[in-house]
Amino acid sequence: MNNNPQLNKSGKLQHLLTTEGLPAPILLNILDTAESFVGVTERDVKKVPILRGKSVFNLFFEPSTRTRTTFEIAAKRLSADVVNLNIAASSQSKGETLLDTVNNLSAMHADMFVVRHSQSGAAHLIARHVQPEIHVINAGDGRHAHPTQGLLDVFTIRHYKKDFRNLRVAIVGDILHSRVARSQIHALTTLGVPEVRVIAPKTLLPSKVERLGVRVFHDMAAGLKDVDVLLMLRLQNERMISARLPSKEEYFKYYGLTPEKLALAKPDAIVLHPGPMNRGVEIDSAVADGKQSVILPQVTFGIAVRMAVMSILAGH
């Protein structure tokens, strides 16, 4: 038996809430299934009938264009019906609670909820509340987790590097506020990446971050040495106001990824970014648009990975 709320009684994936605690075979099954969907997205007809007749509700309590769009495309390519709800602008402002909203949508025969919320744990709360035939995908909750982003990052890494077992991966930037970084770290360590580094100023690192199994660096020159993969994080503008950082210019000087800093990593290192990018803050345009950048393939792979997650969940 397990206490993982993501798994059903037979140990299969019921909800996708976090990459933390998911066994490697489940992660690999998602990545392998996504490989097949990459082929589908390259055909004339980019659709398969597998979720025909199912309803997917995108519940976005926090604004997001890119993530919502990729979930919408993924669901449509699986032939599901998709309803997008931007709840920040609807019932919640009229005082309806989160679970009331979910009850109402369940009564409309939803099969799957894709949830983005500013509160950590919102997707867990919904997953515990819904009937067993409904599946929940966490599309980002507070600072906690963004599992499909973590999965699409490891998918992209495997696509270019083939094997996880000899890699040095560096995550650079605002680890403290990043649900993406947490999802990446759990996925990478479970899949057997021997060395995961985090590179950030002390003010942007959670206390005791080493407990996640990462090596901590505060300096790009030391941290990027011999690195195969760089996972850049978005620096949110509002962090600047909170006095954790002196200025954007100062941040760029020490942590912004320029061609000079990238040259410290291995010559065939790849650069990922979850988007949207702040050019000239965490990443220089010459790197973002350069040969080592795989930022746009990440977006394409993201659709295939979300198709894989949805089709695996819907079948359980």
Binding site: T33, I50, S311, I312, A314, G315, H316
Partner: peptide, 15 residues
């Protein structure tokens, strides 16, 4: 992705 028994047995373990 085209099977007619997806609702009964889900996705094949190895696609």
């Amino acid at each position: 992705f085209y099977r007619d028994d997806f609702d009964k047995i889900g996705l094949h373990a190895q696609v």
